[in-house]
Design a protein around this nucleic acid. Structure first.
Length: 416
RNA sequence: GUGGCCAUAGCUCAAUGGUAGAGCCCCAGAUUGUGGUUCUGGCUGUUGCGGGUUCGAGUCCCGUUGGCCACCCCA
């Protein structure tokens, strides 16, 4: 039996890697004053069909439940967020700074960097329509990647503004119902031959290409860049109006983060969605919002492509499940003494293990090594003393058993 | 959803249409109170699955499932 296509098993090392990624995400988010929340994995299909735009609906992982309800495994968190915030708008002081690490799903043929399931860090700042909020969110996106050791030579944030394009469509008197489609054409323009884009744009091709070729200026984006530069992020960002984003709900600043090498799909992306909460609110709650998402699959690719980042992660993976101490029971008549001390050491917070059945001493040392223990305690003829051996250096000390706890503490304190 | 390539031991991979193998991992021993090296031995397969061609199929053909890549699309 294999896992279903596009779904992953997480073996202990995979879990350790994932935990290290999540820990880094959580630490940076909290430095920015963001708090964690979560919502249901399963949502009414209606919620997602209405709000995510038609392009996502064909890829929904949806089905009918036993109660006859049309339900969908969430493809993204933003509609849930909008629903939750609309329902609880009065309970929290604004602005809200919320993050979440949902597992999201889509029903689509998989390939590298795109599975049917992934974890996606979502950061959203709600109830603040100032440019400062956009700056804060972009800065967070950058710092999240810096948290893995990436610098401006590894990644770039491409900043854009949808209002720049919607103003153009408005000025050209394009009917509203064509906007979503035309924005997608512009979004796709860099992945498509120019003639094809021109054909789709029709009479708009001239003005659009003039802007894409560098003819556009946005004061808002220039201010955004200036404020990011004040935080020391000038090297990380670039104005690029070709970024539009596929989702229908974005209303203002939008951005995507890419690897400089250009080998991977977008690492993170987001923007402003000032109208979405009002659309999902039953009681006319209207709150401006800006946020972004970062998936674990593409991020993992980025980490694996970088020797420095992957070495750091390998270190964290090793530490995640490593023992502090392994008790070697050389004389079975010492087992009861060893187990008593095992319990004491565990209660003191150390990660300690030992062989549960009689085993050769050499075997026990091999196990200690394999489990990543830093030191062993040997229970044998020396009782009531034990031999403490540091595995890396092979140094041995004989310690009276009642001093073991204090000695272990001293040993670790010295290492730190 | 469309197309191309691929599928052999837990992992990485060999095997001209002619007896399915190696390395690593794992287990045991060399070593009854001391680990990382070394040596010896052992374990593992309906060759993804189902059909077909053939005296004979891991190998050729068809189907199917899964994987990779491109397209589509993009959280």
């Amino acid at each position: 039996m294999q896992p279903l296509p596009g779904f992953r098993d997480f073996l202990p090392d995979d879990c350790a890697f994932r935990n290290a990624v999540f820990a880094s995400w959580r630490a940076v988010c909290r430095r920015y004053g963001f708090v964690e929340w979560d919502g249901p994995v399963l949502e009414p299909t209606e919620l997602l069909q209405k709000k995510s735009g038609p392009e996502i609906v064909t890829q929904l992982f949806n089905f009918t439940d036993k109660g006859g309800r049309e339900v969908t495994l969430r493809p993204e968190l933003t509609p849930t967020l909008a629903r939750v915030v609309a329902a609880h708008a009065r309970e929290f002081r604004k602005p809200l700074k919320w993050f979440s690490i949902p597992q999201c799903f889509r029903y689509e043929k998989q390939q590298r960097g795109r599975l049917r399931e992934h974890y996606q860090l979502n950061c959203d700042l709600i109830g603040d329509d100032s440019l400062g909020a956009d700056v804060e969110v972009v800065a967070l996106a950058i710092d999240l990647l810096r948290g893995f050791g990436f610098s401006a030579s590894d990644i770039v944030v491409r900043l854009s503004d949808r209002t720049f394009w919607t103003d153009l469509l408005s000025a050209q008197q394009v009917p509203l119902e064509r906007w979503t489609e035309l924005l997608q054409v512009i979004d796709r323009s860099e992945r498509e031959p120019r003639e094809k884009t021109a054909e789709k744009l029709g009479e708009l091709a001239g003005p659009v290409f003039e802007i894409l070729d560098g003819g556009g200026r946005s004061e808002k984006l220039e201010q955004l860049v200036a404020q990011l530069a004040e935080r020391g992020f000038a090297e990380f960002v670039r104005i690029d109006l070709a970024i539009v984003r596929g989702l229908a709900y974005y209303t203002g600043v939008v951005f995507e983060v890419f690897d400089r090498a250009g080998e991977l799909r977008a690492i993170a992306g987001g923007g402003r969605y000032d109208k979405l909460i009002a659309q999902l609110s039953d009681d006319a709650v209207s709150l401006p919002a800006v946020g972004f998402a970062m998936g674990d699959v593409v991020l993992s690719e980025l980490i694996k492509n970088s020797p420095a980042a992957s070495a750091r992660m390998a270190d964290l993976v090793r530490q995640e499940n490593a023992l502090d101490l392994y008790l070697v029971i050389a004389k079975e008549e010492r087992r009861a003494d060893a187990l008593r001390q095992l319990q004491q050491l565990r209660e003191a917070g150390w990660r300690v293990d030992c062989a549960l059945a009689p085993a050769k001493v050499g075997k026990q040392f091999q196990t200690a090594e394999a489990l990543g223990a830093c030191a062993t305690l040997l229970y044998g003829d020396e009782w009531p003393a034990v031999k403490l051996k540091t595995l890396a250096t092979r140094d041995e000390v004989v310690v009276p058993h009642e001093e073991v706890l204090a000695t272990v503490q001293r040993l670790w304190a010295r290492q730190l």
